[in-house]
Design a protein around this nucleic acid. Structure first.
Lengths: 338, 338
DNA sequence: CTGTTAGCGCTTTCAC
DNA sequence: GTGAAAGCGCTAACAG
C-alpha cells in the first residue's frame, strides 16, 4: 500500500550516475550543461518508469521560489470571488503556479493573518482584496520584498498596483439609466463607503444626479450599511427610503441587490411598476429574477488576467516601476427592472 | 524596502544561544525539554521583536508534513463548490492547515493533473470530488500513502471513504412532492448518470414513481445531458419532454434547474400554472426566482466538517479502518414552483 | 538544561 | 560531459 516516494537519488542509483546530473536533466538544462542526448533520454525514461515526482518543498527551499501564489479574497463562497478564484487558477496554472487562498470576511485582522500565513509559506506573490482599515498591515507588507497587487478595490493611503473595474463609470451609467427612464427620486444603497470600489460607485451615482439636477438632497438618499447584519439593517433603510418617497433604487453590489429583491417581494412591491431598480454585479439571480435586473457586470476575467500579468512582471523584475491603478471597463446590462 | 527575512539563526545569534534551543522554544516544546522559563520568554520576545516567521518550506522538508490540504473540486466558480471551499477553509485553518485547490471541470485528466500537483507539493491530505472515468487515477492514488476522502460523490469501483448527501432520499422526497401535488407525468433531467450522486438522485426519483404507479414509461422520461454544451442540449430535451406531455420536471442539480428556469421564461411557460418543477440544490437563484423553486438543499457545512474529521483521523493513524460512505441528510425546502 | 550535529531532497558551483 | 559537495532553514537525536 504505502509506496515509497521516489527521489532523485533513487533514479541516480539505478542508473549509476550522480544526483546532480539527474537534477540537471530533469529540470531541462541538459543543453546548457552539455549532457549527452543518450544519457538525458535514459534519465528521463527512468524517471518516468519509476514515477518520479519532484518534491516541491525541497526545491522551494533550495531555490527560494515556492511556485505558490496567495489569493486573499473577502469570501471565497461569494460567487463573485469564486469566479475570480477560478480565473486566477487558470492563469496561474498555465504559468506553473499553484494558488492558495484565504477569506478575510472584510476583517483586517483576518486579512493580516492570511498575509502572514502566505508569507510564512513563502508564496512568490499575492493577490489581495484589501479591506477597510487594513492600511497598516498592507504597508507592512510593502516592506517585505514580495510582490503583490490589489484586485477588485484599491486601498486609500497604500500606494500599490491595483486592478479594478471602472466603478465610477458603472455607478454613473447605472444611475443614468434610471434618470433616463424618468425616475425622480433615486436612493442609493452601499455596503460601506470605506471601500474604494463602493465609494467610486456612489460617486458615479452622485455625479449623474448632479448633471441631471435631480435629487438636490442626494446626500440624504445614500444609505450605508456595514458588512454585518445586512438583512435587518437593509430592511429598515429600504423602509425609510420608501417613506422619503424614493421611486428608484441604486444598489452598489450584488448582495444588497439580491437581499432587496427578496424584501420587495415580501412587501409585495412591484418592479418596475411601483419602483425601478438597478444594481452593480451580474449574479445568476439577476437573470433569473422577474423582472430581470438591470446591472453593471464587472470584467472579472480581464481583471484576473491583468493582475497576474502585473505580478509576473514584478516577479521577473522587482525594480519595475509601479503601474498604479488599472481601471477596466465593465458591461451595462439592460433588463426589465426599470 | 527589501527587508531580509529573519530566521532562527538570527535570533539565536542576537541572544547568544543555539539554533536548536530557539527551535525548541518556538515550537512550544520548552516544557518537554525543560528549558528555563526565563530563557523561553527571552527567546519568544526576541522572535516577536524581530518579526520572526518560520519558513514552512524548510519545516515541511524536515518534518515531512506540509500543513497543506488539497481540495480538488469540479469548479471553484460554481457557488456550490465555492461554499464547500469556504467551509473546508474554516475547518482546516482551525487545525493549522492551509488549503490549496484545483478545478477539474469534470475532466479525469485534469483531475489527475491536480492530484499530481498536490502530491508533488506534499499535501498532507486531499479532499476529492471524483469525476467520471477517473477510477484508474484514484486507484493509483490509493497506492500512495496519503490519506484522502471523496466529497459530494463517491466513485464506483474505488473503495474509499466518502462523505455525501443522501442523494437517493433527496430525489425521492422531491419527486414525492410532485406526485402529491397531483402531477401525472414527471420528467427527470440529469447531468450525467455516470456520477454517483446524480445517479442516486435519479434512483430516488424512479423509486418514488414506482411506489406511486405513475410513469410506467419512466425510463423514457429521464433526460441525460453531458457536462458540455448544456444550454443547447437542455433546450431540445425540454422541448421533447413537453412534447411527450410532461406536466412536471425534476432537475437533478442547480445548473439544470437554473437553465431551465430561463428557458421556461423565454418560452413564456408559466410555473406552476402550466408545469411544476423541483430541483436539487438551493442556490440563491431559487429563492429569488418567481415562483420560488422547491428544492433539496445539501448539507454542505456538515459534509465538510465530517470530511475533515475523517481526514484528521487518517492523518493521525494511517491504519484506521475505512469508514466507507457517510450519507448526510439534506433539507427539503418547499416553495411555490409546484 | 543547553549546544552540536546530522540530515530532509533538491539545485548549483566547482573540480576533474 | 560528469561527479562531488555545499547549503537552503528547520527539527530532532544525542551529547554534555
Amino acid at each position: 500500500m504505502a509506496k515509497k516516494r521516489i527521489k532523485l537519488v533513487d533514479i541516480a542509483n539505478e542508473l549509476g550516475v550522480s544526483v546532480g546530473l539527474v537534477s540537471i536533466v530533469l529540470s531541462g538544462k541538459s543543453r546548457e550543461n552539455r549532457i549527452s542526448d543518450t544519457l538525458s533520454k535514459k534519465v528521463i525514461e527512468k524517471a518516468k518508469e519509476l514515477g518520479y515526482q519532484a518534491n516541491q518543498m525541497a526545491r522551494a527551499l533550495r531555490t527560494g521560489k515556492s511556485g505558490i501564489i496567495g489569493l486573499a479574497v473577502a469570501d471565497i463562497a461569494n460567487p463573485y470571488f469564486g469566479k475570480m478564484a477560478r480565473f486566477i487558477e487558470n492563469e496561474a496554472s498555465g504559468l506553473g503556479y499553484q494558488v492558495m487562498f484565504g477569506s478575510s470576511d472584510e476583517d483586517p485582522k483576518k486579512l493580516n493573518d492570511i498575509i502572514n500565513v502566505f508569507l510564512s509559506r513563502q508564496v512568490d506573490a499575492m493577490l489581495i482584496v484589501p479591506v477597510k482599515k487594513s492600511q497598516k498591515y498592507l504597508m507592512a507588507l510593502q516592506e517585505q520584498s514580495i510582490p503583490f497587487v490589489f484586485v477588485d478595490r484599491c486601498c486609500d493611503g497604500v500606494s500599490e498596483d491595483a486592478v479594478t473595474t471602472n466603478n465610477f463609470e458603472g455607478g454613473y451609467q447605472l444611475c443614468n439609466v434610471l434618470i433616463k427612464r424618468g425616475y425622480k427620486k433615486i436612493g442609493a444603497f452601499v455596503y460601506d463607503t470605506g471601500l474604494t470600489n463602493n465609494n467610486q460607485r456612489i460617486k458615479g451615482y452622485t455625479s449623474a444626479l448632479k448633471e441631471s439636477e435631480l435629487n438636490d438632497d442626494s446626500e440624504n438618499l445614500i444609505f450605508e450599511t456595514g458588512f454585518k447584519h445586512v438583512e435587518t439593517r437593509l430592511e429598515s433603510m429600504l423602509k425609510s427610503a420608501l417613506k422619503k418617497g424614493c421611486d428608484a433604487f441604486f444598489f452598489a453590489n450584488n448582495k444588497l441587490g439580491i437581499q432587496s429583491l427578496k424584501y420587495f417581494d415580501k412587501m409585495n412591491i412591484k418592479i418596475p411598476q411601483d419602483i425601478g431598480i438597478v444594481s452593480f454585479d451580474n449574479p445568476e439571480s439577476f437573470q433569473v429574477a422577474k423582472p430581470g435586473v438591470t446591472c453593471f457586470e464587472q470584467p472579472i476575467a480581464n481583471i484576473c488576467v491583468k493582475a497576474i500579468s502585473i505580478l509576473v512582471d514584478k516577479m521577473d523584475d522587482a525594480s519595475k516601476p509601479k503601474v498604479g491603478e488599472v481601471l477596466l471597463s465593465g458591461n451595462l446590462i439592460i433588463r426589465e427592472s426599470c
